[in-house]
């Protein structure tokens, strides 16, 4: 039996079928910004082309997935179209100064080392790599930081890109926009927790997430967001205005801003009064510019929020 049914192109991109209804495309087995930019560019072009039979386009970190109606397009023909688009825009996404993404940057307050995730993570120490400390202590140590404080400073020190949405509705997978040598990486829990508080700020592999709702979870717990990212009843103005139950979109830029308990409580008060709004600014993001000057580009992007 053949162990891989798909095909691989010269670029190393792997095309395969997820049953009769999905085409799965893996740009790279490892996460990298160029791999993500290729996924971003290809899925944006695919959306513009509106090919018949393309039902849903799901960009992800270093891959993407298309739900296909095989009664309208043979999945093999779709793969040929995707390979054409990859040739046209895949590598150009990182190299061509003309490839830009019109998106927004969002200010997302986070209380690190908050009491709520602390209480939960201490109850699940038996499922953790290091039962003796906290998740922040552990993350700091294995990433070479001398203290939880300096680790938090790094986590909040550069913006993130939402490279994938999903797992559960509204959950953003956020990849920090820093060169590889500065990227934080942490393992998931040895055994997943049966509990994670709503709006917990977690980290697993190379990705930061906010949990939209409470539930099981295996990511390291570093903090808590006071503001909702999922609003099933669309009570908050941001959600009502957009007529959406989820706040984030693929391609959003995020600044996780460290806040204290007073600001946390203040935001909670606004949420309870149903008048919370995220601070957002429209920005134009150029992958090639970022790759040429990460820190300068980040400063300009974050600067938009504080203008």
């Amino acid at each position: 039996m053949a162990d891989v049914t798909g095909t691989t192109t010269d670029t190393g991109t792997r095309y395969d079928f997820g049953g009769d209804e999905f085409v799965y495309v893996e740009i790279s087995p490892e996460m990298s910004l160029p791999a993500h930019f290729a996924s971003l560019a290809i899925t944006r072009r695919l959306r513009e082309e509106a090919l018949p039979g393309v039902e849903e386009i799901c960009p992800s970190n270093a891959s993407y997935m298309v739900r296909v109606d095989p009664d309208r397009i043979d999945p093999r023909d779709l793969v040929r179209e995707l390979q054409r688009i990859e040739a046209e825009v895949g590598s150009a996404a990182s190299e061509d100064p003309d490839f830009v993404v019109d998106t927004r940057i969002v200010d997302v307050p986070i209380m690190f080392a908050d009491p709520w995730t602390h209480e939960v993570l201490m109850r699940f120490r038996d499922r953790h790599q290091d039962p003796s400390g906290t998740d922040l202590d552990y993350g700091a140590r294995i990433n070479g930081y001398d203290s939880a404080e300096s680790f938090i400073a790094a986590l909040a020190g550069a913006p993130y890109l939402v490279t994938m949405m999903g797992f559960v509705p509204g959950l953003p997978w956020c990849f920090q926009l820093v060169p590889r040598e500065r990227q934080v990486e942490v393992p998931k829990y040895v055994r997943p927790r049966t509990e994670t508080p709503e709006r917990a700020f977690g980290f697993g592999g190379a990705f930061a997430v906010i949990y939209p709702v409470k539930g099981a979870g295996g990511y390291q717990l570093f903090g808590s967001a006071p503001a909702p990212i999922f609003d099933g009843a669309q009570e908050q103005p941001d959600f009502a205005d957009e007529d959406s139950v989820v706040f984030f979109r693929h391609g959003d830029l995020i600044r996780f801003r460290r806040i204290d308990q007073a600001e946390y409580d203040d935001v909670r008060g606004q949420v309870e009064a149903r008048r919370w709004r995220y601070r957002t600014r429209p920005v134009r993001f150029s992958p090639s510019r970022w790759l040429a000057d990460p820190d300068g580009t980040n400063a300009a992007l974050v600067g938009e929020l504080d203008r």
Binding site: G19, E21, Y24, P29, M31, S60, A62, K188, G205
Partner: peptide, 19 residues
């Protein structure tokens, strides 16, 4: 690979087809 996490059952997080 970078981003996948340490467990051999892990890959860089991606979409799961239904089924």
């Amino acid at each position: 690979p970078f981003g996948a996490g340490s467990d051999p059952a892990n890959v860089t997080d991606c979409g799961y087809p239904v089924g």
